[in-house]
Amino acid sequence: MNAAINSLDELLTHAHALEHEAVERYEELAGQMEVHNKPELAQLFHKMAALEQQHVDKVKSLAGGQPRRLAPWDYSWQTEESPESVPVGGGHYRMNPYQALSLVLASEERAESFFSGVATHTTDPVVRETATQFALEEKQHAELLREWLTRYPKPAADWNQDLDDPVSQE
């Protein structure tokens, strides 16, 4: 269960960190895919970063400027990091589009569940309304991703086999 968030300021503080860190992680993954010559996946992660940036901008405009920032460990996440960030260790240089989309889908689902949890547990009607709206937007992303997933094959059993490991030596 999320710790109760009972003011719009607290909600926007959390929403801003969640969306902003999602952008950073998607850009990081895009960079990784570029380095490992996976342009299709790099494009997907850039696209996701751009989508999440729209959420960052929306949160900022609702807050009337830059929302407050807390120490990284003081946010009320129930996950190791903010819920919309693909977890460290999530990617792989041999993953296929199906796996990449699954990572993204899981992130959107965690974000949806975070905001619906806030809406359920808050005592503040404005927080409830705003969190419900945020949850709905994440749900729409998730539905779109589920549809995209149907277009790609699941990975073969030996997808991570590589006879030429990826690291360069010094």
Partner: peptide, 13 residues
């Protein structure tokens, strides 16, 4: 400079 670590490497964290 973009890290050349394997995606998924703990060093990113």
């Amino acid at each position: 400079v973009k890290p050349i670590w394997c995606p998924g490497c703990g060093h990113f964290g």
